[in-house]
Design a protein around this nucleic acid. Structure first.
Lengths: 250, 250
DNA sequence: CGCCTGCTTGATAGGATTCAATATAAGTGG
DNA sequence: CCACTTATATTGAATCCTATCAAGCAGGCG
């Protein structure tokens, strides 16, 4: 079973043997966490950095009114709280959605990683992709209709899971409830249910019990005009791997 | 007129004289850009980093359907594209909303800034706050009703402008049209108009011709349950200014 | 003065929410 | 292993919020 973090980071650029070993060692001891368990809560200031090795987690916030908004799904290879080095306190929560394997990487280990130039850039790249993903979610909730919102979300998750070898072209596991989907895309659970039925009726996707079956990925992507640029994936290899160099640009 | 970037960064932590001079020098030569002008477009890969010194800019994306979503307002002291060092191409656009003064900071200057530990942390802090702000916008669009959405946006902008000395407790300039507001909060321009009227009727705020008058800031904040934690401002001074130190935490 | 942009208003339609009830599945404990 | 309880999914009906369409108004500018 390949290291999902390594797999992700190498999309950005090649790592040397030392870098790889470093990453591998860092993920050596993962612990298993039950589903629906908070890993970090708002106001806390964890000393270590959490990383998802297996399973599914999410960032979320609960409003005074009791409403919940999910900001991000964290799939294998994703960091939970790299910002720990700078910000005093978390401004949101992170929880598991399914049984997951989590590693807690000590601060010092992260610092040592950042001391390796290529790894440092790869980590930075990962956080920038997180931010770009967040922007796309804002587009999703701000501009798209219910059905297309959900279609777009599935397209994204599918691609991100593919990167870490957790999805093929026909299906993938995505263990969330319809209520959680609703809190993700800013819709009511009832409407999510109906939108899912509508997508099934169009013979695009079938989602039940945490399994997404893609009946026609191409049509699904067309429906929501899915443009994966913001994930900086395939293009990732072409992304700037250098720092100070001043080469000409188009 | 104090340097807005310096003013912002010092919220995070103290800078030494050398750091300050460095930042001051970096902002020395600003150019004036007309309103509604693109600074950077999707797909581009600017060689320098843009920073807003005066005026107002925004991040945005246009969908194939022609819809526009605004992701962020950039006020004096905000960077436009620090990610230039890592990502090959912009995945969104940045434009001026009003006449603005912009500096283009060479890559080398940024690299020199990052070489200064305290400045590096302050820059990192700034990008993390940007991300947290984006999360809050997702909450806004995903969970709140029209009126409260707009109220919350005004609360945020007011606070961010206050930090750089561009707002007092009674009013501030915010030169956007109602259409732009609509593209920000994911509503139709008509509905934005009506929501603004409603806020005026409650004697909370009056927004006309780019001037926001706050009739009762306390009541406005209560209406939208405004919690500025996510901006990490006042708490900013207490945020972690250290890197590797391993001090006890509560 | 006329034009353009931005704001305002009214009427209508539609998408999404809410409420409520039912069905189905999943666990739990005796 | 079955009965009970809880979580999740599904369905229908009524309501509400927001969008759309369309028209009128105001102010700035050449």
């Amino acid at each position: 079973l390949p290291n999902p973090l390594l797999r992700k980071l190498e999309l950005f650029g090649p790592l040397n043997a030392g870098d790889k070993k470093f990453v591998d060692d860092a993920l050596a001891r993962a612990r298993t966490v039950a589903a629906h368990t908070d890993l970090i809560s708002e106001g806390q200031s964890p000393s270590d950095v959490h990383l998802v090795v297996e399973g599914l987690c999410c960032r979320y916030k609960i409003l005074p009114s009791g409403q919940r908004q999910i900001f991000a799904y964290l799939v294998p290879g994703d960091f939970c709280d790299l910002n720990v080095f700078i910000l005093r306190a978390m401004d949101h929560n992170i929880a598991t959605l399914a049984v997951s394997r989590i590693v807690e990487i000590p601060r010092d280990t992260i610092l040592a990683m950042v001391a390796r130039p290529q790894l440092a850039r790869a980590l930075w790249w990962a956080t920038l992709v997180d931010e770009a993903t967040l922007r796309e979610w804002l587009v999703n909730v701000g501009q798209r209709t219910a059905e297309i919102r959900i279609a777009h979300l599935f397209c994204e998750i599918h691609l991100r899971l593919s990167v870490v070898g957790q999805a093929d072209d026909r299906s993938f596991f995505f263990p969330v409830t319809q209520v959680e989907l609703a809190d993700t895309v800013g819709l009511s659970p009832v409407h999510v249910n109906r939108s899912l039925q509508s997508l099934r009726a169009r013979d695009l996707i079938d989602f039940k019990k945490g399994l997404v079956e893609l009946h026609d990925l191409g049509k699904l992507r067309k429906l929501c005009s899915f443009n994966p640029n913001y994930l900086h994936l395939e293009g990732g290899k072409l992304d700037r791997g250098d720092f100070g160099e001043d080469r000409p640009r188009s």
